[in-house]
Design a protein around this nucleic acid. Sequence first.
DNA 1: GTCAGTGCAAATGGTTTGCACCTCA
DNA 2: TGAGGTGCAAACCATTTGCACTGAC
Lengths: 151, 151
Amino acid sequence: MEVSFDKVLDKFTKVLKKSNLRMTEQRKKLLELIFDSHDHFTAEELYDRCKARDLGVSKATVYRSLTLLTEAEMLEAHNFAQNALVYEHIYEHEHHDHLVCTECSKVVEFTCEAIEKYQRDVAKENRFTFESHSLNIFGLCPDCQRKQKSK
Amino acid sequence: MEVSFDKVLDKFTKVLKKSNLRMTEQRKKLLELIFDSHDHFTAEELYDRCKARDLGVSKATVYRSLTLLTEAEMLEAHNFAQNALVYEHIYEHEHHDHLVCTECSKVVEFTCEAIEKYQRDVAKENRFTFESHSLNIFGLCPDCQRKQKSK
DNA sequence: GTCAGTGCAAATGGTTTGCACCTCA
DNA sequence: TGAGGTGCAAACCATTTGCACTGAC
């Protein structure tokens, strides 16, 4: 666990309180599951983990909680593929972009200050405000390159 | 029309032939609609234009043709939002990235050689092959900034 | 006690597919 | 003439929603 659960719980509780929302057993259980590892995951995968551990959290609650955590800026949703959103932690994590393997879907994070800077320049040149960006580089990861060669 | 229809028709016909596929009336009509402007569009929008002009092309054929044109590398599909793929011409057009307005969904194209170069470097550093990338910068376009101020 | 949260099942909406009929090469 | 193409409606699948019940504060 990269961030202490207490800290995560505290943060989410405070964000909820601001909007007059409540901390519930289900939300607590989901938080624990989500921040237990730093993996990228889909709503469906999270729900499967709930079922596997018999947490008694419904699919609807999983989806609703992911939306809340994204609004709270504790998670970020990515459109790597068109079929399902992929979530990842952003609470207490530096911003980064992604290398995505087109074969096995493995995701590797990277940061590049120079690219960040040029993006701001581009937005300014076009008189757009800079809210956010998504940069994904697609290619074969080292493992899949090896597998492909040995075919 | 930015590319002559004859050229587009010729290209698609050749690609189809390679896979033992046929040029049909429906595919011809869709090509004409698609390459008549350089706008970004969704499958649904294209289908609506078909209906408006009474072209007699079904939704299934629209979807199937968009897939074929993407495979033929005449169109590219983008995941700007999670709800619908947005298509654009890439045949006879330079590669570029996108500024997307978070308010009105307007898309502005840009190219930045420096960013392209850094991306290749990042892929190499992580021993990924470089197949493609998607870079989208999200913010408010000039028009929407103006509207927001005057509220 | 009240209002938000939950589970369930049904609805949604973009996209895909099975199938019988049609048509290009 | 036969394989590929088409239209239609049904299926899919991630996600959302309506509703009656439950529970946090």
